[in-house]
Amino acid sequence: MQRFFKKLSRRSEPYIFLVLLALCVLIEIRSGQFFTPNNIVDKLSALVVPGIFAVGAFMVIVSGGIDVSFPALASLSAFATTKLLLDAGYTGGIWLPILLSLVFGAILGAFNGLFIGYFGLPAMIVTLGSSSVFKGFMQGTLESKQLAVIPEGMANFGRSALFVATNPESGLTSRMPTSFIVFVVVLAAAWFILNRTMFGRGIYAIGGNEVSAHRAGFGVRKTKFFMYVFVGMIASLAGLMRTCMMTQMHPTNMLGMEMNIIAGVVLGGTAISGGAGTLTGCMLGTLLIVVVENSMILLGIPTVWKDVFVGALIIIGTGVSALQVARANRVAARKNAKEVG
């Protein structure tokens, strides 16, 4: 048991969890509104889109890359899906939109994957470029503008709820959106891929040491390529969920989300240099950002200060956990040295 805790102290997830808990308790003390059923459901509902994005961003960062194009990718793909279905007068359910957006996401992801995986170009540069390309394509070629109406099937899915939580005191209600299931499925699929398939272990291996991965027999290019395809599909799904949940399509509404998503992933203990991190940490970090972004009002902080607060949290949160982990490692190293000496 002691061993377990010692091991735990050298990971960053527990610290993030404690920070998250402290923040929640603080909000609860200030407002008395945090630990209410409807607020918790609200937060989980707000987690859906950032959560799905974070899973994709997490994979890329673990592989030692970085992706700043996912909001643009998601916007383009969701816009194309919605527009295509509207023009076709589609009246069916959610399955076709999901399928379509997965296809678009895969194609756009393949674009990133081709340049990063097969041509070996730096991921940062490629995704900065592709981000512009995707945006430009959406605004130029597709002449994107806000679509106030989206296909009925999508809107219905967005409005549908798994259950409704009610605040016993105020009587306020919150719906748990059905899209939460999509988030859980994406999370589960990503967990399975990363931890139970050789493809996923390959992503970790590449993030740890690309040359070694090649020598060990991993198809480095192929792994990277398919990872970006997969990440494109995940991001695209997030875009579609966002559109459904808003019951309208804002083409530029998601742009700019990448920084907070990546911050959440890193906050969760994912090494920005690649190779290390867990989905648990990634989700904790993302949840932390979501809670901060959505609880300023409960804390009595004017929303104009939101960005400052989020920024400070990122610096402090990442700093504290990095320091803690470094200290735990140093203690362990010193102990090791003593045992040897």
Partner: peptide
């Protein structure tokens, strides 16, 4: 040619 971020077991068994 090792993966410092992974366990001894994985390093040994991957190939």
């Amino acid at each position: 040619s090792i993966f410092p971020n992974l366990t001894v077991m994985e390093n040994l068994a991957f190939n």
